[in-house]
């Protein structure tokens, strides 16, 4: 079953007076339970594609559907609700709300979903345990290392069992050992809890973890390998 369907998506930016073709017609299906990497050099369109899949941005043409619901015609409020319930995000850095502790950051999503406090707290702690942060619940982001912060971000992204987690270069700000550790953990979540991940990277080491490797060049899919 395809949890994400991307059809003929195009996106153009105007930079000064020049038109930049960020996506030139991308079509892509991601299966439930997948662990896919978007690979490509800087400027190839990875972030643009992930933002569009996540409903943060809208394509100029083409269509995206997550878990069967198409984005076209959705209002900003609909998109927000969609992101809340079906999509998890991990960004390259500064993912967390600085004034909230690790556990509060993870809880926040469930708070927005209207879950009650006891359940929220318990699930948040469980997920933090899963990503290897037991005992660090009450640390603020500033008191955590970069790798730990990204783990909190992953925990927050997966805590409400979304259809898909989108991670845009999650390891780019980490040293390779920490980065590999993060990917190991993500893969474990994928295998144990069947969380679907799409992550972007331009690092060959990171690509090795993927079970599917989608190569992007100049806003187009250049290669798509299922390993």
């Amino acid at each position: 079953m395809n949890i994400v369907q991307v059809k003929e998506v195009k996106k153009t930016y105007i930079q000064g007076k020049v038109e930049v073709y960020a996506l030139r017609g991308v079509s892509l299906d991601i299966k439930k339970g997948g662990f896919a990497a978007l690979a490509g050099p800087s400027g190839s369109g990875k972030t643009t594609l992930l933002n569009i899949i996540g409903g943060l941005d809208l394509p100029d043409s083409g269509d995206v559907a997550v878990d069967g619901s198409s984005f076209s015609g959705m209002s900003q409020a609909d998109l927000a609700k969609m992101r809340l319930n079906k999509i998890g995000f991990v960004f390259q850095a500064y993912n967390l709300i600085p004034v909230l502790s690790a556990v509060e950051n993870v809880e926040f999503v469930m708070l927005l979903q209207g879950l009650d406090k006891v359940e929220r707290r318990q699930r948040a702690k469980d997920v933090l345990d899963d990503v290897g942060l037991e005992g660090k619940y009450d640390r603020r982001p500033a008191e955590l290392s970069g790798g730990q912060q990204q783990r909190v971000a992953v925990a927050r992204a997966i805590v409400s069992n979304p259809s898909i987690v989108l991670a845009d270069e999650p390891t780019a700000n980490l040293d390779s050992k920490t980065g590999n550790g993060l990917l190991e953990m993500m893969k474990e979540m994928n295998e144990k809890k069947s969380v679907t991940f799409i992550f972007s990277t331009h690092d060959d080491m990171v690509m090795d973890y993927a079970r599917r490797l989608v190569q992007i060049r100049d806003g187009e899919i250049a290669d798509d390998i299922v390993k």
Partner: peptide
């Protein structure tokens, strides 16, 4: 602003 962006990405509406 970035922090607000993160909040919106995880599903918070601007009104919130």
């Amino acid at each position: 602003t970035r922090e607000f962006g993160v909040l919106m990405a995880i599903g918070a509406e601007p009104g919130r």
